[in-house]
Amino acid sequence: MTATTTSAYPKPVEELIPAARALADKLGEVPSRNRLMRELRVGSPKATALREVLTVADASPVAPTDPVPVDVPPVPPADPVPADATTGSNSEQEIALPVERPEPLAPVVVDGHPVSKVTTEAVPAVRKPMRSWVLLLLAAPAFVAIWSGWVGLGGLTGFGVVHPLPGIWDSLSLNTAITLPIGVEAYAAYALRAWLSGDGVPRRARRFAAWSAIGSLLLGAAGQVAYHLMESAGITSAPWQITTLVACLPVAVLGMGAALAHLLHTDES
């Protein structure tokens, strides 16, 4: 049996580097730690040190004349940096910069009360409501003339004094001619208010109120004209055409008033 002879004086790592480099050139790669221990007959610490030396030497730039190892794949070139790649850090730095904030404005005092919110929008002018006594002054003479005209026209078309409760209250009498001014003119005012009241009125109700108000006013004007023409001509009994039209007025006013009230209470816009 032959014993393996070893040197009594082990070589240091510096003397073993050429042999390790020659082994790496022969293999075409950095040998493993076990391969270094077996080929160079060294221990594990020296094999590890030699492998680190070869790894560092292999990572250093190779001269153009040195052959390229076959087993090492070529390293692909790095992607070019986009032109705007460096702007990202600058933009981030700009965003990170502190922004000077304007000092808060002092609250504006309106009518003795501070107002914190200030807007540049134009403030709508507040209009004062019209005096109602002007309308009463205008309506008083018109009411007298319209009332007398309708009552007179009712007398010419068959409206007159009736006893509404015969056998119960025989002394109670009522001139039915007053139903004409009360019904026609009251509905005209009611329809005008529904037409011009604002956005709270449904669209269908406003349209119906507009047409019926205009029709009621025109019908009232026509009734006044008819009465004064017959009165000035000395006619004591109206023609049947006028009598028929006037007799239908209470029924028409009742229907238009009920229809408008129904449309005003609907949810349709």
Score class of each variant (00 low, 15 high):
P76L: 04
E100F: 09
V53I: 11
K46D: 07
G43R: 02
T48S: 11
M230V: 11
I17W: 05
S173G: 06
P77N: 06
I95N: 07
R193N: 12
E29V: 13
P76M: 01
D79L: 14
V70N: 05
A8Y: 02
V251Y: 13
E15F: 05
V75Q: 12
A47F: 02
P45C: 00
L260G: 10
S237Q: 12
L192P: 00
A188L: 04
P67T: 05
L40T: 00
V13R: 11
V126D: 08
A259D: 03
S173R: 08
E29K: 14
T4K: 14
T5S: 11
W150N: 13
G215M: 05
I146L: 09
F159I: 00
A22K: 10
G255V: 14
S7W: 08
L27V: 06
A24M: 11
A177T: 02
V123D: 08
D58F: 11
V253E: 12
L218I: 08
D25T: 10
A205I: 09
E92V: 11
P12D: 15
A238W: 06
M37F: 04
G215W: 06
R203C: 06
S212T: 14
A83P: 08
S60W: 05
Y190C: 02
V81D: 08
L16M: 12
E185T: 13
D84L: 15
V144A: 10
A78Y: 04
L264H: 03
T120Y: 07
C248R: 09
E231T: 10
V75L: 13
I235Y: 00
L264G: 04
P124W: 01
A20R: 01
D71P: 00
F208Y: 15
R101Y: 11
I235F: 04
W195P: 02
P77H: 05
D84A: 14
R203D: 14
M37A: 14
E92M: 09
T266G: 06
P73G: 00
D79N: 10
A213R: 03
L136H: 14
V68R: 12
S212R: 07
E103K: 10
L138E: 13
K26H: 14
T65C: 08
V162F: 01
E92S: 11
V42W: 01
Q224M: 15
L219D: 09
P82R: 08
P164A: 03
M1P: 12
W240C: 03
T5Y: 06
E185K: 03
E100I: 11
A247H: 13
V108G: 14
G112C: 10
A186I: 09
Y187A: 06
L138M: 12
D199A: 15
L153W: 04
V126L: 13
A188V: 03
A238Y: 04
S89Q: 15
L54K: 03
W147F: 06
A186D: 07
W211S: 15
G234N: 04
G88L: 11
L137A: 15
G158K: 02
L36G: 02
R203S: 15
V70T: 13
G88Q: 12
N175T: 05
V201N: 05
S232L: 15
P82I: 10
E94R: 13
L40Q: 03
T55K: 12
